[in-house]
Each structure stands twice: as C-alpha cells, then as structure tokens.
C-alpha cells in the first residue's frame, strides 16, 4: 500500500508544471524514504531528477518500493482542479496498480477524488556521480528566468562563463549579440553567491534552459553548478524536503 498526504498540494502541482514540457511519461518511484522521478527528455539531451522526501508528507506509508507510471499532461489536467490551499492524498495498491487515487481536500466541506490511469513505463536510470563542481552560482530564480527569456530573442546558444568578475551569460545571433553579467552581491533582496575553484565556460541550448525555468515558482533561489566538459545542473530546492534538478549536456565545438 502506498498512501501519502501532501498538505501543500500546490507543491506537487508546481513540480508537474515544471517538468511536463520536457517529460511526457515518467515513473513516480515511491519508496520508504521518498517519492522520486528521474527521466530524460525525448531528445535525450537533458535529465530531470525530482525528489520529495517522506518528511515532506504529513502521513506517509509505502510498504514496498513501487513505480507508478504517469503521463504528465494527464496528471496536469487533473491538478488543474486542485484548489490553491488543498492538500493531496495519494493512494495506490501494492501490486502493479492500474490507477493512482488522489484526494483533494480544502478547508471547506468539499472533498474531490480522482483516479489517474497508470501505465508501464520502461526507463533507463542513469547514475549521476556525486562529485563537487568547479563553480556554483546561487541567485534569484526569477532573475535567472528573466535572463534566459531575454537572451532567447538573440540566438539559440547561451555561453555561461563563471570567472573572477562574476557569471556572464552571452548570446551571439544573426541580429547581434548580448551579455548579461551577474556579480556577487550580499544584498538581501538580490543576493548572488558565487563559489569558484576554477573559471568555467560552457555552451548550452537556451531552449532547454528556458524549459528549466518553468520550475521558478517552486523556489526563491536557483543553484547552477558547472564543471568543465560535464552537464550543468540547475537545481530548484523545495524547502528542506527535496528538489527539482535539471541536467543539461553542453554543446561542444566540433
């Protein structure tokens, strides 16, 4: 039996909204410790990893590990009916369940229940090594979203270079080019923290960075981690309960 109640149901809704443009079908991997999602986008360029620890839920029971295969667009349709202050209670049987039951409960006398059909999804699980990164940038999530959105009008590829003066986001395109430099700042409102061992410069597809910023409502700050010649990690922490992380393979010179 899997049964779990998330008091702030809107957090789960925001997670699905954050990933549904990248991931069509995915497994909710439920275990005693957590509910997790790991999935590549259809082009196999990026990877999405979601974690919500059991402590994020007010009641959590998972008798045995289970993978619940969902279609994110269909899940999103059901979550449209979630009230902004509603809790969600998830329920599924142990042995290859056909459906996932979700109860939406608000402060009033209304209880809504929905059943989402599940499917068998075969996925390739990638092992992501837990290695330190040469550069880690923490900045406001809405500021990162604005930068990515603004630079997209100039071109397809963004060069992110982290150096002594800060982090530079650069785009070169047919109509011209642009650079946005973000420097370390202690100001409470716009705090930017840059930890750098060595300068790093990498190229990324703006289209994917833009997909990642759909997770902006989940977190005040985004953490961007880079090392030479490996994927960038764009992390949106979900309080102390988990995260949505996006991994994007770099573009390299041929």
């Amino acid at each position: 039996m899997f049964e779990a109640q998330l008091v702030e149901g809107k957090t789960f809704k925001a997670i699905i909204e954050a990933i549904k443009d990248l991931v069509v079908d995915c497994n909710l991997d439920c275990s005693e410790e957590e509910v997790a999602i790991q999935s590549m986008d259809s082009a196999h360029v990026s990877l999405v990893a979601v974690r919500l620890s059991a402590s994020a839920f007010s009641n959590y029971r998972c008798d045995r590990p289970n993978s619940l295969g969902i279609n994110t667009a269909n899940m999103s349709k059901i979550l449209k009916m979630l009230g902004k202050d509603d809790s969600i209670t998830f329920k599924a049987e142990d042995e290859s369940p056909d459906s996932l039951t979700m109860l939406f409960e608000g402060g009033k006398s209304t209880i809504a229940d929905f059943e989402l059909k599940l499917m068998d999804i075969e996925t390739e699980q990638l092992g992501i090594p837990d290695t330190p990164y040469q550069c880690t940038i923490q900045m406001r999530a809405d500021e990162f979203q604005r930068i990515v959105r603004d630079l997209q009008v100039l071109g397809d590829t963004c060069t992110i270079s982290c150096g002594k003066e800060g982090v530079r986001f650069s785009v070169t395109g047919a109509i011209g080019n642009g650079n946005i430099l973000v420097r370390s700042s202690d100001e409470d409102k716009d705090k930017v923290t840059i930890n750098m061992e060595e300068p790093v410069e990498l190229n990324f597809a703006l289209r994917y960075l833009n997909f990642f910023t759909k997770a902006t409502p989940l977190a005040e700050n985004v953490v961007i981690s880079m090392s030479p010649d490996v994927p960038v990690v764009v992390e949106y922490p979900i309080e102390e309960f988990g995260h949505v992380k996006f991994y994007l393979a770099p573009k390299i010179e041929e």
Binding site: H44, Q125, L126, I128, P129, Y247, A249, P250, K251, E254
Partner: peptide
C-alpha cells in the same frame, strides 16, 4: 560550429 551532446554520454546506466 557547436554541436549538442547527449546526457547519456556523461552518466552511466544504473
């Protein structure tokens, strides 16, 4: 010219 790489090139299958 820059070419896009794939995520599988960097992480092993579990």
């Amino acid at each position: 010219e820059t070419v896009q790489t794939y995520i599988r090139q960097y992480y092993p299958l579990n």
